[in-house]
Simulated scan of single mutants.
Amino acid sequence: MTQTSTSPAAGQAETFRGTLDRLAGAQKGAARSAPAYSRFVNRRLGRVLAAWAYRRGLSPNAVTGISALCTFTAIALLPLVAPSALLGVVVSLLLVLGYAFDSADGQVARLTGKGSPAGEWLDHMVDATKIVTLPLALGVGLYRFDVVDHVWLLVPALHAVAGSVYFFGMILTEQMRRAAGVVSTAATGGRAPWLRSVLGIPTDYGTTCLVFLLLSVPTAFFVGYAAIVAATLVVAVAAAVSWYGQLRRLTANEAGAA
């Protein structure tokens, strides 16, 4: 994580608004191609939570811990409690909070200069765990409470596979590119490609968080959830093809320069 830190002037009591302003200056620019919820909603929620955490002296790892607590509490409820309107709201709210705190930990790290490889590792491990456990917990709950025909349980199972492979491929590709001296950067300035952000909504983790609001209406929930899984599969396959091509070209360029 970036080690940049900015501090208020000595002897001045900083307001919450002032902390928010410093966060805006210290954080990374949002990638223009990021899905709409992550870009326009979650990042801003994360900024507010990061300001709250910073003013209470919480470390980036502590913020990651709060994110994990919210997320995994929601995940644990899915196989333990029968689907209902109340469960859907609680699960969705906890997942949204967990996602916002996931954004906040990096913002706190950049604001305080306390980012570290260990902190980045912890953040990725929490992400990797939630990606596979959320759909599996959902599948167990659907089976236990006999919500859908059993054949449809393949959908969350497929989601667990596609999400895990996509996340691993993204991290592995980035590490291999770094090892070759190439650092990936996402464009953050210029005109915003609104259409690309909107088209990314089905694969946005925020969309997955919100679809649980439909949990009390199984048909509507499963239509929305199945669409998310289908989009994830398409993106995972397309990304894998693109990453493989990038690494092949990188290898060819290195061989040509030798």
Results as ranks from 00 to 15, higher is better:
T6G: 05
A13C: 06
L23G: 05
L23W: 06
D21A: 14
A24W: 02
E14S: 05
A31I: 13
R32Y: 01
T15E: 00
A9P: 01
A10S: 12
A9M: 11
Q27L: 11
T6E: 01
G11E: 01
A34I: 08
S7G: 01
P35T: 14
G25S: 11
A30S: 12
T4P: 07
A10K: 15
S33K: 11
A9I: 11
G18H: 06
Q27K: 15
T19I: 02
E14G: 02
D21W: 05
G18N: 08
P35D: 10
M1T: 11
S5V: 12
Q3W: 02
A13R: 03
D21R: 15
Q3K: 12
L20M: 04
L20S: 04
K28N: 06
A30R: 14
F16A: 10
A30P: 08
T19V: 06
A34H: 03
A10C: 03
S5H: 04
S33T: 09
T15S: 09
R32W: 00
A24M: 13
R32I: 13
P35H: 07
E14C: 06
G29H: 09
P35L: 08
G18S: 10
A30G: 06
S33D: 12
G25P: 09
T4Q: 12
S5D: 00
Q27V: 15
G29K: 14
R32P: 00
G25Q: 09
R32M: 05
A30M: 11
D21M: 14
S7N: 07
G25R: 14
T2F: 01
L23N: 11
A24Q: 14
K28R: 13
G11C: 09
A13L: 05
R22Q: 07
A26V: 08
T15N: 03
T4M: 08
T2L: 10
P35R: 07
A10Q: 15
A24F: 06
A9R: 08
G29I: 03
T15H: 03
R17D: 11
G29T: 13
P8C: 10
Q27T: 14
L20I: 15
A30I: 15
T4V: 12
L20G: 04
